[in-house]
């Protein structure tokens, strides 16, 4: 059984009298520990596809199986639990809450989880240490550089020990050096913790560092 299986997924947005097809009949199998990259032009449906996998939006048709369970039929509450426990998100912008410190931002998923583990604080500090900003745990996002903010976002994505990290252009606005560092972290986590990575990027160079390469074009996905 694959960790993620997309079966004939389609997503159509009604815009006025028109129906815009963002994802068109996509089927895909992802195994645990895979490192996938998806490239494609803007508006090709990459973000929509990753959002469907992450349970942020529901497809118009098709099935998304995660460990054999169809997440498309889950209630809003169960989908939230799925996102909280199984998926780690990284967005194409700084997604930290400005009012919270780095450590508190990392702890945020725990606030929405069901577990009341007493060592969450320690765990958050360890993750921040692991991503290389252990000295910034009490810093607010405004006091951090773009690269440091992404590291906090990685630590946050890891906090609930997800099986999959969905990263939507996580290094889009970072310099090459920082981009390489972030990518190095992803590969390390993939190798050491067997976390599945689905990486969306414009950069072919970055995409080339993944194990599997896919291209999204006009809503359709092809393996390259």
């Amino acid at each position: 059984m694959s960790q993620i299986e997309l079966i004939d997924i389609a997503k159509i947005y009604p815009v006025g009298d028109l129906n815009i097809t963002a994802v068109n009949s996509v089927s895909l199998k992802v195994e645990k520990g895979d490192f996938l990259s998806i490239v494609g032009h803007s508006g090709s449906g990459k973000t929509t596809l990753i959002s469907i996998v992450g349970g942020i939006i529901k497809p118009t048709s098709g099935k998304v199986l995660f460990d054999g369970t169809d997440i498309c039929v889950l209630s809003d509450e169960k989908l939230s639990e799925y996102r909280n426990g199984k998926i780690g998100f990284m967005f194409q912008f700084s997604s930290l809450l400005p009012i919270l410190t780095a450590k508190e931002n990392v702890l945020l998923p725990c606030l929405f989880g069901s577990g009341k583990e007493s060592d969450n604080g320690k765990k958050a500090e360890e993750y921040l240490e692991m991503v290389g900003i252990g000295d910034k745990i009490n810093a607010y996002p405004s006091q951090l550089s773009g690269g440091q903010q992404r590291r906090v976002a990685i630590a946050r994505a890891l906090m609930n020990d997800p099986g999959v990290i969905l990263a939507d252009e996580p290094t889009g606005d970072l310099d090459e050096e920082t981009e390489a560092e972030i990518m190095g972290l992803f590969k390390k986590l993939n190798k050491e913790k067997h976390i599945t990575f689905v990486l969306i990027t414009h950069s072919l160079e970055l995409a080339g560092q993944a194990q599997r390469h896919l291209r999204m074009s006009r809503g359709s996905l092809t393996e390259i």
């Binding site: 939230s80 998923p109 994505a157």
Partner: peptide, 15 residues
Amino acid sequence: REVGIMRAIGAKKSH
């Protein structure tokens, strides 16, 4: 946007 991010990382409507 913050609410959207919170929802994406697992916040329920009740949260």
